[in-house]
Computed example of a mutant assay.
Amino acid sequence: MQEDVIEKIILKTVDIPSLPPIAMKVMNLIQDDYASLSVLEETISRDQGFVTRLLRIANSPYYGQDRKIEDIKQALLLIGFETLKSLVVATALRDLHRKFDAFEQRLWEHSLGVALCSSLIAMVTRLAKPDEALVCGLIHDVGKTIINNSMPDVYPKVYEKMYETGETVRDIENEMFGFDHTVLGALISKKWKLPEKLEMVITYHHTYPFPDYEDAAFADICNIVRVADQICNNIGIGLKNPLDIPIDYVSLDLTEEALVELIGLFKIKFEKQKDTLLS
């Protein structure tokens, strides 16, 4: 009953867009056991913007290929269907950033930072696949993007209050709207029929320990994104100034020395790779 009430509040306050048609078609094809690579390639080729981003990411330093990927088929073979499924959603998310003013730029930069940091943590800890962690980090704050799109004159005030009072974004969202970005994100995940792993990360990237009533198989990736988010907040990625918050590296079985090394490596990777996904 409480969920129904919150959903009504959300739908009165926020305009939840549909996943773009090209994204829905590709998602359906990927989940169809009988869909051929050629059909998938032909469908993707209809959206030049998506093709451009797909090839840019396939050729990014993240994938570390010695040869240039020049067509969709090569990119699909390199990236794989599961990563492509997430990439479709991430591309749709990028398209949601319509205005790209200074505040929206910071929101996107933070998501990108969490994506790259999550991928690095996954690689170091071996608790998840780095490419899956990348996209989970990229989409974790989709709720914030949707709220900002619906209330562009109001949502930046959430962050201004955070800087002034030190309250968390979620607490301020609940005070101002009656829900927070993770609750909205869970609703969006269901409306868009996202893969369950993405839904879990969007919903529980601030939750630790992971809820017993959910599938524990997703606990590690949710925790990776949670700690990556803490790291990015702590060093000010996507913020006007860094937040002095603890980083729960112990939950990932990392030492303080390993954390310092990881953060140093992350800063280098972020500067090298951010342009790939920011553009």
Rank of each mutant, 00 (worst) to 15 (best):
S119Q: 00
I139V: 14
S118N: 01
G166N: 11
G178P: 01
G178E: 00
L198S: 04
R106S: 05
I139N: 05
R106E: 05
L194P: 04
D153I: 06
E173T: 07
I147K: 14
D141V: 13
Y204M: 12
V183Q: 13
M151N: 12
M151Y: 14
I172R: 04
I147N: 13
V158G: 08
S150G: 03
K161R: 14
G178T: 03
E132W: 10
F177V: 04
L120I: 02
N174D: 04
S119C: 02
D180F: 07
R126T: 03
K191F: 12
A186C: 11
N149K: 06
A186Y: 15
P130Q: 00
H206I: 13
R170E: 15
P130Y: 01
N174H: 08
E160G: 14
K193L: 12
I202N: 03
D141L: 13
Y163Q: 09
K144N: 14
K193R: 14
D180K: 05
E164R: 14
A115V: 00
P130A: 00
L187K: 13
D180V: 02
K197A: 13
Y204F: 15
A122N: 00
T168N: 09
N148E: 11
H140N: 10
H205I: 07
G178Y: 01
K129A: 07
Q105Y: 11
L107S: 06
V124E: 00
H181R: 08
I139Y: 08
D180N: 07
I147M: 15
R106H: 10
I146C: 07
I139A: 07
G143V: 10
K144G: 13
L198I: 04
V124H: 01
V158T: 12
L116Q: 03
T125R: 01
A186E: 13
R106W: 06
T165H: 05
L134V: 02
W108V: 08
N149W: 06
G166A: 11
I188E: 05
E104N: 02
W108P: 01
M176G: 05
G137Q: 02
W192Q: 06
H205C: 08
L187M: 11
L138Y: 15
I139T: 11
V124A: 04
R106I: 03
K193I: 14
E167V: 12
P195E: 02
L198C: 05
Y204S: 09
N148K: 15
Y163H: 11
A122V: 00
G113M: 05
D131W: 07
I139E: 04
L116A: 00
P130K: 00
W192I: 07
Y163S: 10
H181Q: 08
V124L: 01
L134P: 05
D171E: 15
V135W: 09
H181N: 08
R170D: 15
H110N: 06
E196A: 11
A128E: 06
N149A: 11
D141I: 12
H140F: 05
L187S: 09
L112E: 07
T207K: 14
K157N: 12
E104P: 02
G166P: 12
A133K: 00
L116N: 01
Y163D: 09
C117N: 02
L116W: 04
S118C: 01
E167P: 08
H110S: 02
K161V: 07
P195F: 06
I202L: 04
T145I: 15
E109W: 12
A133R: 04
Y163T: 07
R106D: 10
S150W: 03
L127E: 12
V142L: 09
A128M: 04
V201C: 03
P195K: 06
